[in-house]
Design a protein around this nucleic acid. Structure first.
Lengths: 133, 133, 133, 133
DNA sequence: GTGGTCTAGACCACT
DNA sequence: GTGGTCTAGACCACA
């Protein structure tokens, strides 16, 4: 499991970490029950502070992506993923609004938007049946 | 043109302003050549700082959404909108990645994602032919 | 609004802070819309680190007790308090279990338990109509 | 005597153990003089560390719930239970404070609180006259 | 060795 | 001046 972080980005490091791990789960590089690196281990690997890693893990825990226990450390939630319920969908729609407004102004059609999002979907699912990692 | 700002939101006010104005253009409530409220007027209307409004307008100018003239003040760019070129699409795909990864984890299908984004598209286009505002 | 913290206690400082503020709201010393001290101000008043205060504020925000905005800092949620819904009641019952099991073993009757909890209730409500603070 | 441990919980395992055993006594599944499982046996049953079980037993001993003999191992105190004396009541009141403050903020009445605690009391006493376990 | 807590001190974004 | 982020380094509880 390779995590790439851009220290220059405006996106906070802990957010990049959260995104990278969620993407790892989506790509099935990380499977339910898999252990994540220890806070200190990952921090030193990435050359960042352990608090930054900890914050990312706490967010993932709060959202239901991982469990934190005293024995194994942090593991991908083996029981369930966060639900695609109504509150989530509403939040997602709200978050997509600025992107879609921008797209409309630029003359991007719904079909082009779908095509673009499809390329992202497919990119993530490409590896699903071929994980040697 | 109604602008709603949420002071509790984590999104910076100037970003909310930019988003609201871009959305106004997408909804065709704001047409090319239309004047935006003056910096002072908008700031006092919303009860926010002059600098905040100014920052939003500068960003809109830099992205090509508006022009700023000494005489007319700030007007929606009458000549063109920002383009849907390759760099833009790549940036958009990059920005959508975290949302799509999250959606995949939650079990949202591409079809459901499209359906959800369609509802946002349609919501914005509903008013296209009926703007007396 | 006086906040007392016991630095020697086994209870984490940020938990003590959360408890003290919730109790302040229960006692109506803190009313909806009231501003809480700034992170730095409270930290220096209490002689503790600003991160510790910040953690307490973040928890209160997450639970819905306060709002954090860029202008006024942290304020007691003016719109609503957390709900007494079913998940909350179940959680509360779960948390009371060890205390009640202990009480039963010691021979404390339900009536004595109610009496004891009443004294706590009344202590908190005593000030309700007399806050000069 | 069934002991359920939640490794994901924030509550330390030894505390969970203590709570579970006290609850077993309250439910009269464990009677004065009854032997508790051996440290080794319980640890391997639950898949946890010897030290953890030991710590729980030491706490129970210190509180007066059990006696530890060389011969019989750990037995529920046949002579007496911890008392419901004044120091205990004061401590209990202190521990209930955060819960009651929270309840008040959420609009839970004293009557609803009593009702909720009654359900816990009754749940524990339900089995009193029918323990074949 | 794991995460949890706390400190001291720094820089930045926002208003 | 506010909170948000990050660092460096420390001690402790838990297993």
């Amino acid at each position: 499991m390779l995590l790439e972080i851009d220290l220059q980005s405006e996106v906070p490091i802990y957010t990049q970490l959260v995104n990278a791990i969620v993407e790892g789960i989506a790509r099935k590089r990380l499977l339910p029950g898999d252990a994540l690196p220890s806070v200190r281990g990952l921090a030193s690997d990435l050359g960042i502070n352990l608090h930054t890693v900890n914050k990312a893990y706490q967010i993932l825990k709060q959202e239901g992506y991982v469990q934190i226990n005293r024995k194994q450390g942090v593991v991908v939630n083996p029981d369930s993923m966060p639900p695609a319920d109504q509150p989530y969908r509403q939040r997602l729609a709200e978050q997509l609004r600025p992107f879609i407004a921008d797209a409309i102004c630029r003359g991007l059609t719904k079909e082009q938007f779908d095509e673009l999002s499809r390329s992202v979907f497919e990119d993530m699912r490409r590896e699903e049946n071929s994980n040697v990692d």
